[in-house]
Amino acid sequence: TTYKLILNGKTLKGETTTEAVDAETAERVFKEYAKKNGVDGEWTYDDATKTFTVTE
């Protein structure tokens, strides 16, 4: 399944996708990605669109 991440950081904005077996796995991948890019904020997930959003 393809999951999407929307980054709404103070200095970094953008989108990325990952293939994962479930939302929990995708969330771990995306949180590591955000951490590596210095983005830390509020996380939300929309199951209907398989989209995570992190907003600083």
Rank of each mutant, 00 (worst) to 15 (best):
L7K: 01
K35F: 15
L7D: 02
V54T: 03
E24N: 09
R28Y: 07
K35W: 15
Y33T: 03
Y3G: 00
I6P: 00
V39L: 11
K36Y: 11
F52Y: 07
T2E: 08
E24W: 09
I6D: 03
A48H: 10
E24G: 10
G14L: 12
N37Y: 14
T2W: 14
N8V: 11
A20P: 01
T2L: 11
T18H: 08
T16S: 13
E15A: 08
A26L: 01
K50V: 03
N8F: 09
D40G: 10
V39A: 03
G41I: 01
T25P: 02
D46L: 04
E24K: 13
L7I: 15
Y45G: 00
T16N: 05
T44K: 08
D47E: 15
V21C: 08
E32F: 06
K13A: 07
V54I: 08
E27M: 14
T1W: 13
T16I: 15
T18K: 04
T17M: 10
E27R: 13
T49Q: 07
Y45Q: 01
E42C: 08
Y3P: 00
T17D: 05
A34M: 04
F30H: 01
E56V: 09
G41K: 01
A20E: 05
T18Y: 14
A26C: 02
F52V: 01
G9T: 13
T25L: 06
E42W: 08
F52G: 00
A26W: 01
T49I: 07
T2Y: 10
R28D: 05
K36Q: 10
R28A: 15
N37S: 09
N37H: 15
K35V: 12
T44C: 06
T1F: 12
V39H: 04
G41Q: 02
A34I: 06
A34E: 01
Y33H: 05
A23E: 06
V29C: 06
T1H: 15
K31P: 00
L7H: 04
E15S: 12
T44G: 06
Y3S: 00
T53P: 00
T53M: 10
L12K: 14
E19A: 08
D22E: 05
N37M: 15
G9A: 11
T2H: 09
A23H: 15
W43F: 04
F30L: 04
K13H: 11
T11G: 10
A34L: 07
T44Y: 10
D46E: 09
N37I: 14
T18A: 10
I6S: 04
V29K: 10
T11E: 11
G38F: 07
T1M: 11
K4N: 06
G38V: 04
V54Q: 01
L5D: 00
T16P: 02
A26S: 02
L12E: 06
T11A: 14
G41L: 02
N37C: 07
Y3D: 00
L5V: 03
T2M: 13
T49M: 06
K13I: 12
D40S: 13
N37A: 15
E32D: 10
K13M: 09
E27Q: 12
K13P: 05
D22M: 04
E15Y: 12
K13V: 09
E15M: 14
V39G: 03
T11K: 07
F52K: 00
T1D: 13
D47Q: 11
K13C: 10
D40I: 14
Y33K: 02
D40P: 04
A26M: 01
T18C: 09
N8Q: 11
W43H: 01
K36N: 13
E32R: 08
E42Q: 13
D46G: 02
L12G: 07
D46I: 05
D40V: 14
L7Q: 02
G38P: 02
A48E: 13
T44L: 10
E27D: 05
E19R: 08
L12D: 05
T49Y: 05
T1E: 15
T55G: 04
A20T: 06
T25S: 14
Y33R: 03
T16D: 04
D46R: 03
K35I: 10
T55D: 07
T2P: 06
R28G: 07
K50D: 03
T11Y: 13
K35G: 07
Y3M: 01
D47A: 11
E56M: 07
T25G: 08
I6T: 05
K50H: 12
T1C: 06
V39N: 03
D47I: 12
K10F: 15
K13L: 07
G9W: 05
T1N: 09
T17P: 02
K36D: 08
K10W: 09
D40L: 12
F52I: 01
K36V: 13
T1R: 08
T53Q: 06
W43G: 00
E27V: 07
D47G: 10
T55K: 06
G9C: 06
T16K: 07
G14A: 15
G9K: 04
Y33G: 01
A34K: 01
E19K: 07
G38Q: 08
A34P: 00
Y45A: 01
W43Q: 01
D22H: 04
G14F: 14
V29A: 12
D40C: 09
T51S: 05
T49G: 05
E19D: 11
V21N: 13
K31N: 04
K31E: 04
D46T: 05
E19G: 05
Y3K: 00
F52P: 00
Y33A: 03
D47M: 11
A23V: 14
K50E: 03
A23L: 15
E42R: 11
W43S: 01
V54R: 01
G38R: 09
G9E: 03
E32Q: 11
E56T: 07
D22W: 03
F30V: 02
T17F: 13
K10M: 13
D47S: 11
Y45F: 07
A20R: 03
E15F: 12
T16F: 15
V54S: 02
G14H: 10
G14Q: 13
E19W: 15
K10G: 05
E24V: 13
T53G: 03
D22N: 15
R28N: 07
I6G: 02
V29Q: 09
E24P: 09
T2C: 10
